[in-house]
Deep mutational scan, measured.
Amino acid sequence: KLPPGWEKRMFRSNGTVYYFNHITNASQFERPSG
């Protein structure tokens, strides 16, 4: 389970998975720990 605010997303163009935090508007490719 991801830390609060984080969700898994995917770029439609190339299928790359990334993680987005809707609380802080942060995004990263590494899976957030917590």
Score class of each variant (00 low, 15 high):
Phe29Trp: 10
Thr16Lys: 14
Glu7Trp: 05
Arg31Ala: 08
Leu2Gly: 03
Arg12Gly: 15
Phe29Pro: 06
Asn14Gln: 08
Leu2Ala: 01
Met10Ala: 09
Ser33Arg: 09
Arg12Glu: 15
Phe11Ala: 10
Asn25Val: 08
Pro3Lys: 01
Pro3Ile: 00
Ile23Ser: 05
Val17Arg: 03
Lys8Thr: 07
Lys1Asn: 14
His22Glu: 08
Ser33Asp: 12
Arg12Val: 13
Ala26Glu: 15
His22Ile: 15
Arg31Val: 10
Ser33His: 10
Ile23Asn: 07
Thr24Ile: 03
Thr16Tyr: 12
Thr16Val: 14
Arg31Tyr: 11
Gly5Met: 02
Ala26Pro: 01
Pro3Leu: 04
Arg12Asp: 15
Leu2Ser: 02
Ala26Asp: 11
Thr24Phe: 06
Gly34Met: 13
Ile23Lys: 07
Thr16Met: 12
Trp6Tyr: 01
Asn21Ile: 09
Ser27Phe: 15
Gly15Ser: 09
Leu2Arg: 04
Pro3Ala: 06
Val17Lys: 07
Phe29Gly: 04
Asn21Ala: 01
Pro4Gly: 03
Glu30His: 06
Thr24Pro: 03
Pro3Gln: 02
Gly15Tyr: 00
Ile23His: 11
Pro3Gly: 04
Met10Gly: 05
Tyr18Leu: 03
Arg12Ala: 15
Asn21Val: 04
Asn14Pro: 04
Gly15Leu: 07
Phe11Asn: 15
Thr16Glu: 14
Gly34Phe: 14
Ser27Thr: 14
Phe11Tyr: 13
Ser33Gly: 13
Lys8Asp: 04
Gly5Asn: 05
Arg31His: 10
Lys8Pro: 02
Pro4Ser: 08
Phe29Asp: 09
Gly15Trp: 04
Gly5Pro: 07
Phe11Lys: 13
Glu7Leu: 07
Leu2Cys: 10
Arg9Met: 10
Pro4Trp: 08
Ser13Asp: 13
Trp6Pro: 01
Tyr18Asp: 10
Glu7Thr: 09
Ser27Arg: 14
Pro32Ser: 02
Tyr19Asp: 04
Glu30Leu: 07
Pro3Arg: 01
Asn21Met: 04
Gly15Ala: 09
Ala26Leu: 11
Val17Asp: 08
Val17Ser: 09
Gln28Val: 03
Gly34Trp: 15
Arg12Lys: 13
Tyr19Met: 00
Ser13Pro: 12
